[in-house]
């Protein structure tokens, strides 16, 4: 018998701390498959972020440096500039990348740092217990928007991928989801493309992944998974927003 599906080698064989149904685990598996596919495990240095995502250093079988909240694009810049031959991987949540670390991601992108950025958008601060994030949907109730997010008070959910796609330094920018088998297949393709942008030294490759947080959304895993399609995708459209094949930037 031949194994047709199994755990990727770069995904450490331990139980994750993620809640039941949380998409972080799925995304980890896809990223590990990309690490295996491009054969970069032994050349990879990860820059961990702060939030549920920090435990990438427990789950990927790679070297990892921890970063202060939101700063992993700067930390990764330091790693990559002093080690241009290494593969540098970032895995950031929406609080980390889209709020406290907005300056760091925009300027790393604008400099065209050849980094691979996995951006997990689950519209909420997960680890701190479900507070409003910059990506929280209008009307969404969180522990700090108990009446629902209201634009006159909190502004609109931020569309990071559209913003980053504007920057010349970004070689690849896409938004994907992992809520259905069809979306999963596209997500895998996008993650691979974001790896290739770095492997081919074309600039930053980033993928925003719409993700569920059943615990902090107050839903079970199935309901949370469905919310991606019914509420998130209509506001956060899926697709490839930037694909620059040539390396004319450099």
């Amino acid at each position: 018998m031949k194994q047709v599906f199994g755990r990727p080698e770069s995904l450490v064989d331990v139980a994750s701390h993620f809640c039941p149904g949380c998409h972080h685990g799925t995304i980890h598996r896809l990223v590990a498959e990309a690490i295996d596919h491009y054969g970069v495990r032994e050349e990879t240095i990860g820059a961990a972020s702060v939030g549920c995502s920090v435990f990438m250093y427990d789950y990927f079988d790679i070297d990892v440096v921890e970063s202060p909240h939101g700063r992993s694009p700067a930390v990764a810049t330091g790693v990559k500039r002093s080690n241009p031959e290494k593969f540098v991987l970032l895995y950031q949540g929406d609080g980390d990348l889209a709020a406290i670390g907005t300056a760091e991601i925009i300027h790393a992108a604008n400099r065209g740092e050849p980094l691979t950025v996995i951006f997990v958008n689950n519209t909420v601060y997960g680890m701190t217990g479900g507070q409003m994030a910059p990506t929280t949907m209008l009307g969404q109730r969180t522990t700090t928007s108990p009446y629902g997010r209201e634009f006159s008070q909190d502004g609109y959910p931020i569309k990071i991928t559209e913003m980053l796609a504007q920057l010349e330094g970004v070689a690849y920018a896409a938004r994907v989801a992992v809520d259905t088998p069809a979306h999963l297949a596209k997500a895998k393709k996008a993650i691979f493309a974001a790896f290739e942008a770095q492997v081919e030294k074309r600039g930053m490759g980033m993928v925003e992944i719409l993700s569920s947080c059943p615990t902090n959304w107050g839903m079970n895993a199935i309901e949370a998974n469905k919310r991606i399609e019914t509420e998130m995708i209509p506001y956060f459209p899926l697709g490839v927003f930037k694909e620059r094949k040539g390396s004319d930037f450099f």
Partner: peptide, 17 residues
């Protein structure tokens, strides 16, 4: 088809054919 395995966030299922 391994759809179950792909959807599992915890990589609990391995599929052989």
């Amino acid at each position: 088809c391994a759809i179950c395995a792909r959807m599992c966030p915890d990589v609990v299922i391995e599929v052989f054919k």
